[in-house]
């Protein structure tokens, strides 16, 4: 049974330097959906993602995640909200001086989980991304695709219901990008809602998922089925 897990009601975001990142955006994403967010650089895609995981607050309008208005959450409530949201970035954001296992386990340890649980969950997550055999290696010893898989393992280790990915294939070659996308699709089939911000026309065109297009902070398109074009 699907329900709206992410809802934007007339959301605008103007940064303090006057830049209008989003203008009057309304949308609804259902649980278990796979959504591409596309648009040229500066269209407001990253801001949209940041609003979902409460890194930014809307200037006006409401952003509801799992029915809760994120702009009204207290700091500790935001922390708990984020435990239910996995985020993957283009630049991986891995800690260079920690092993693959330590990077993934870090996400659980900082949430105060017991070491037994951390060990088991981390091994499960690394198994999911097929990197268990590289658990003792450091990020710099891995390829770009492997580093991104570590970042994905870290994002899913908490078993979040939403996975936000901001240009996750931006630094990867087409073959590896396809692998990463398949990983997201597997997670989506298990019920995780996936929001994928991308510039990769090939990936978007290869699937029939919903596409939301942004341009200059305005939603220009919201199609139930794919295709990479802005308008």
């Amino acid at each position: 049974m699907s329900f709206p897990i992410i809802q934007f009601y007339n959301v605008s975001k103007v940064y303090t330097n006057g830049i209008v990142a989003l203008s009057n955006i309304s949308l609804s994403i259902l649980s278990g959906e796979f959504v591409f967010v596309i648009g040229p650089a500066g269209a407001g895609k990253t801001t949209l993602v940041k609003l979902i995981y409460a890194e930014e607050k809307p200037t006006s309008g409401e952003v509801l995640v799992d029915g809760r208005d994120v702009s009204k959450l207290k700091k500790w409530e935001i922390a708990f909200l984020r435990r239910n949201i996995g985020v993957v970035f283009q630049d991986f954001k891995l800690i260079r001086d920690r092993t693959v296992f330590e990077n993934v386990a870090f996400a659980l340890r900082v949430c105060g989980f017991s070491e037994n649980f951390v060990k088991k969950a981390t091994e499960d997550a690394l198994g999911r991304v097929d990197l268990l055999h590289k658990r003792g290696m450091y990020p710099d010893q891995l390829s770009g695709g492997e580093q991104q898989r570590v970042a994905i393992a870290r994002a899913i280790v908490n078993k979040p219901s939403i996975l936000l990915t901001d240009e996750p294939t931006g630094n990867l070659d087409p073959y590896v990008s396809e692998e990463i996308l398949q990983l997201f699709e597997d997670l989506n089939k298990e019920g995780t809602t996936v929001v994928m911000v991308t510039h990769n026309a090939g990936i978007v065109n290869s699937r029939d998922y919903r596409v939301i297009a942004l341009q200059d902070g305005i939603k220009t398109r919201d199609d139930g089925k794919g295709g990479y074009r802005y308008v």
Binding site: Y53, W76, A79, F80, R82, V87, K93, V110, C111, G112
Partner: peptide, 13 residues
């Protein structure tokens, strides 16, 4: 940044 991202509370940080 990662701690905040994965849901660590301010006290935990």
């Amino acid at each position: 940044e990662i701690m905040r991202l994965v849901g660590a509370t301010e006290w935990f940080i």
